[in-house]
Nucleic acid binder design. Structure first.
Lengths: 217, 217
DNA sequence: GCTATCTGAACGAACGTTCGTTTCGCAAGG
DNA sequence: CCTTGCGAAACGAACGTTCGTTCAGATAGC
């Protein structure tokens, strides 16, 4: 075992935290480097020493900013869930009262969040299980609230007769899933930028909901 | 740190290998226990000692059957990809020549495989990144072949005018994704068994492809 | 008595974490 | 202007534990 290969599961390279999240400084640098490492190797696959090396620090220096490795992950997971929930909530607020427009707004926001912050999406969705229950609980609660937003819109649309779905729960899961798997295959290009991708996901979601869309090739 | 909580990311409990996979014996027991552990805690989160404990063996005994921990994972990942590819290929062979029927067969097989073997699906899709490239390569090649099957059917249907999609690649990704996220939220119930779920995924896929389905509530 | 299987003990390496010390920017005091 | 004191941040070394793995020897079935 001469040189360990650098295994990575993501296409994206540079880790970006949501804008308003954390003031500049070492604490932010730690979170960004940890986001990168946890996203590409997993929480258990990335050590405190790896993290310190990436930051050009000694391992002990990290403990001036976080009480443990788990707390670094917990902070990332918390930030991710808050950014996601806030994004959905804001999108919904500006979408009027029609279920179709509300769904457009939700899917668009969901897709943009996952496309623009792929590492955070991966860490939030996979590494949360590495947290002890008391650190994961707040994020799991937020996640349920976000899922409830989508469910409510679908149910309202169904009640009004504008959506026609064979199974609301499975359809909601399918729509969520569109965004959740994005980090594993998508990267922005000129031929398919995030905006086009969001439009496509909106179109696919409306089709699943039985809403007639514009004709496609 | 008195008792470590048993974190798990899957709803399913009992690990089941595809039928024809491995002859009975200790080797099979090891694979099944490893599948369970790797699926619920991740490769790096489950140790050789955890695995030995689950099998009521001493850690050293495992090395009579596998040369390393990585090779256990590699075997699981290989089996998973082969079962998946074989399942898709067989389904396609029995589906005639009409793109709609071929797509039904592919989506149905894809969904059933993921619903019936959730742990294997998780290990195959997430823990493959813990393998060195030379152990992962054969499985990644198989994965591309499986994706190509779906792409080919979609392209043929589009050429024949029976599918109408805004973007073939994104739609194919969306259809694959339906199955891939299953292990994280689905478990079979009387109200929604695997067969109904497969039918629903077929219906959703056809809707995304612009094929008129039966009316739904 | 050969082969396959498992045990028990041990190896070096890596793990997360702790702790006393050092470094450094900066404001206050003479 | 120089010194002093201080708090924050990082260092360097070490801790106890767990990691994956090795290997000589015990055990058992053919």
């Amino acid at each position: 075992m001469s040189v360990p290969p650098p295994p990575s599961r993501l296409r994206a390279q540079k880790a970006v935290l949501p804008a308003s999240a954390v003031p500049d400084g070492t604490r932010r640098r730690i979170l960004e480097a940890a986001l990168q490492l946890f996203a590409s190797r997993g929480f258990h696959g990335a050590s405190i020493r790896d993290l310190a090396t990436a930051l050009e620090l000694r391992p002990s220096a990290l403990y001036a900013h976080f009480p443990s490795k788990e707390h670094v992950l917990a902070e990332l997971v918390r930030m991710g869930h808050e950014a996601h929930h806030e994004g959905l909530r804001t999108a919904l607020l500006g979408a009027g009262s029609e279920p179709v427009e509300q769904l457009r707004a939700l899917v668009r926001a969901h897709t943009l969040l996952h496309a623009n912050h792929p590492q955070l999406a991966v860490v939030v969705n996979e590494e949360i299980h590495a947290l002890p229950p008391e650190l994961a609980a707040p994020s799991l609660a937020l996640r349920e609230q976000s899922a409830a937003l989508l469910h409510a819109v679908i149910e309202r649309g169904r009640a009004q007769g504008v959506f026609s779905v064979p199974h609301a729960g499975v359809t909601a899961a399918a729509i969520s899933t569109l965004g959740l798997r994005l980090p594993y295959w998508y990267e922005p290009t000129a031929a398919l930028d995030v905006d086009m991708l969001a439009d496509l996901h909106v179109e696919l979601s409306l089709r699943m909901l039985g809403v007639q869309g514009p004709p496609a090739s």
